[in-house]
Design a protein around this nucleic acid. Structure first.
Lengths: 299, 299
DNA sequence: GTCTGTGATACCTGACAGATATGACGAGTA
DNA sequence: TACTCGTCATATCTGTCAGGTATCACAGAC
């Protein structure tokens, strides 16, 4: 029952990301030798080699990859513990809702209005964040609940209720040859090399192949689209409030996007339950989150 | 972004359980003053009062209760990290299956046989455990996958596939007045004060009210039932292999029990996927675990 | 060969975890 | 009231260990 210290976990995650002792030490604000020593001690205590030192950089072993994933989860849980405790102690007890800036605009408005009517204006706070950051915020305790999208976001470890499902459209400059069509296919858009599709990072941080620019913030893509330098595929409801100069054309074979409310699995908070109740009344699909009362064990 | 140390978390969990500094220090194998100091420092760093010291014992504040729950999760994640890493580094890579001793006997036999046929005899190891311990083993990394039951076990944070669903029976001494009946109701059994129903702890560790003995291990209940000192309600399939002298009578209004395979949510292990595949072929209900390939993000 | 860059080792120092001894304070009890 | 018992907090010491600096050993480039 040896227990790893958070310092060791942080050290290992950093070095596993950098694959370089000196740079990792720099990021950690410390010198390289103690870092070497700490990792060596960690390996000795676990009885497992975590890194292969190759004189030219460092490589993760299989065990090292396992530890990287698990250590990230553990560090998330630790900072969630700190964050949630701190917030539980402070007086302002409002729920924090994380949502991607610019997405699900109208639904968010309706939700805020409904929640305000139901529970007063002070009960919820909205935290706008970048693409895909909601999961991180929920896991670290920086938010209690988030608006997310399937099959886009990483929903592992969360309970959810679906709010609505919709088709996707491509945002095109008004003068683009496809702009007058009623619908297009994904294949047609990929052939359009004059204005290529923007490429978002996948869940693992890598980018799909293609001619388009790599983007990872809302403001980047907003500018690129406004300049007519990139195409963008988004849920139909997101098209109205931005890019009024552009055309929106349905993409027939893009997956339908389900907007949903997500929160950490097993959260027993009454405030979240109340919010879910309100939100479920808004959407146009059935919810299926698991927040029924728990049955007693055995019998 | 202050990060709590595992030592602090362990200290706090212990003291929150004992609600007594000296006893907690004893359990931790240390003296009381450093423990007081550590908790005080923790409160100062979080900026939140965790305990109310009342001169007559200690009470958790609201923030303290939050931290207790979150700290337990974090400590689980940490020991899972250590355990899984250690096992990833050792050569024997077989899956560890946790199952409650005595439950789902026949299904377990079939599963083992099928897995052996499919993937060879060395690919799985069975870890028998006490009632409800499976969740803890999965969370701490001591097991990769578990046979569990709904609505009995705590399934939060796990992905699952259902294997089978069945009615429950009550195990009665052969001479018991109800033993010749075809079926009984829960109410009838509760009225039977001569041989009362055994009481299992609930998920939170408390016991339901009633005249029967409090039990928490398989061997306890086996002995009590064999002696005719307690009644026991269990899934129908569990009745055959134990207590051959006893009668089993269907309980019409007991909830049906679903036996399922559970594993930590989001686990991407190919070995688990293989096992799930085999197991799904065994049962008589459809699976609904979430282990489909992940879709790339964005459009 | 020399130079550059890698991670590992040797050794020192300061901070802090933990121990012991003691204090402060309330609840009993007479 | 005074005395005891039990609670947690405070004061002070000490040893351990995390982190620093200086240096080594080794590989590749040239």
């Amino acid at each position: 029952m040896l227990d790893l210290e958070t310092r060791e976990l942080r050290y290992f995650v950093t070095i596993a990301e950098e694959l370089h002792f000196r740079r990792a030490a720099e990021r950690l604000g410390m010198a390289q030798p103690p870092l070497s020593r700490a990792i060596a001690r960690l390996e000795r205590r676990l009885g497992v080699q975590l890194l292969e030192r190759n004189r030219r950089g460092v490589k993760l072993t299989d065990a090292g990859s396992v530890l990287l994933g698990e250590a990230r989860k553990a560090l998330d849980a630790i900072s969630a513990a700190a964050e949630l405790t701190r917030r539980a102690g402070t007086s302002r007890q409002s729920l924090i809702l994380a949502t991607q800036a610019g997405a699900s605009h109208e639904l968010l408005q309706r939700l805020l209005e409904a929640v305000t009517n139901e529970h007063g204006p002070e009960c919820m706070e909205v935290q706008l964040c970048e693409v895909g950051e909601q999961a991180e915020m929920l896991r670290s305790g920086a938010a209690d609940v988030a608006i997310m999208h399937r099959p886009v976001d990483d929903l592992i470890g969360f309970d959810t209720v679906d709010l609505c499902t919709e088709d996707q459209v491509v945002i095109l400059p008004a003068i683009h040859p496809l702009a007058r069509r009623n619908e297009v296919t994904f294949a047609e858009l990929q052939k359009e090399h004059s204005v290529p599709l923007a490429r978002w990072p996948r869940l693992d941080g890598t980018y799909p192949d293609g001619p388009g620019p790599e983007v990872h913030t809302q403001s980047q893509i907003a500018q690129l689209v406004a300049l007519g330098k990139a195409l963008l595929i988004i849920p139909a409801s997101s098209r109205a409030w931005q890019w009024p100069e552009h055309a929106a054309v349905a993409v027939t074979d893009a997956p339908r996007i389900t907007t949903l409310l997500a929160w950490p699995a097993g959260s027993r908070s009454a405030a979240i339950a109340g919010l879910v109740q309100v939100a479920s009344g808004l959407g146009d699909t059935e919810g299926h989150g698991d927040w029924a009362p728990r049955l007693p064990k055995g019998g």
